[in-house]
Design a protein around this nucleic acid. Structure first.
Lengths: 145, 145
DNA sequence: AGAGTTGGTAACTAAAAGAGACCATACCTC
DNA sequence: GAGGTATGGTCTCTTTTAGTTACCAACTCT
């Protein structure tokens, strides 16, 4: 079980290494890499949180600001713009005073929830392992130093 | 189909919004957030590439350096250290001259391939949509300006 | 002797994240 | 009508992080 990478490669392993080979052959143009494109969004501090917050229902700017809590308005604006630019989020302005603006997931935005949710689930189930590894590593470092 | 978020919420949507509610209730301590922890790694420029490169077989430092191509040694070292610290990658030194060091995925590292692969697959199938959205957005911007 | 290989580190620079003050508009209270 | 509140931002400044380049020690091959 712990030696899953010996001999009987699981399907995913093969899938990944094939992908890698394909990237290699294609020259791996980072600028045009779809994966990089997506992971840049997924990886930034706020995008996932905002996508999660918008999963159930559209929310207004200020509602998001309150919901996320420790995000600054600048970062919220910036993150929303990027998500909007990538077609994951839709921005609607209602010409009231004070202005009302709401944000909602597009179909594309909804569709990313599935793989994203799987990754989050992995994170949650394996977090203890990660923390344990981290502690062990830091202790070794401390001893070595 | 395009109105998937009206009425009949798909399972994932509900899953995500429940998760969000749970985070909200827990006060969302960013420092102790498992998701943030994981996504920080997934989101950085090189981690995913390295995990992919190591999926099939262990590789040496210089092999990784060549395989990834446009990564600098410093970033490679740094990324590998972080992955090692998080228990995703195992580092083995053979006392030869010149030194031989190889890196391989741990069981934990292998286990992340599954959700990661799903996300990459999403990125690849939806990349055209993202690019289209991006172009449309940029054109609107240009017109507005 | 000189060049090449190994797996890094140290010092520096460019880019991005983030905090905080500010803004126009309109409402509501005193 | 002065003062406070709310809206959805932007502008400026500082701190953090990403990334590049040069260098190192030890050994082998020519």
């Amino acid at each position: 079980m712990t030696k899953a990478h010996e001999g009987n490669l699981p399907a995913v392993t093969e899938e990944m290494s094939q992908r890698f080979d394909a990237w290699q052959e294609a020259g791996f143009d980072a600028a045009n890499c779809p994966v990089r494109d997506v992971l840049d969004r997924v990886g930034d501090k706020w995008s996932v949180l905002i996508l999660t917050a918008l999963a159930e229902e559209p929310k207004r700017f200020s509602a998001l600001n309150r919901a996320v809590g420790d995000i600054s308005k600048r970062m919220l604006t910036q993150t929303l713009r990027t998500l909007q630019r990538d077609g994951l989020v839709d921005r609607t302005v209602y010409p009231t005073t004070p202005p009302t603006v709401d944000y909602r997931l597009t179909e594309l935005g909804h569709s990313v929830l599935e793989p994203l949710s799987a990754l989050i689930a992995w994170a949650e189930t394996r977090h203890d392992d990660i923390r344990a590894a981290r502690n062990a590593f830091d202790e070794d470092e401390a001893v070595a130093a």
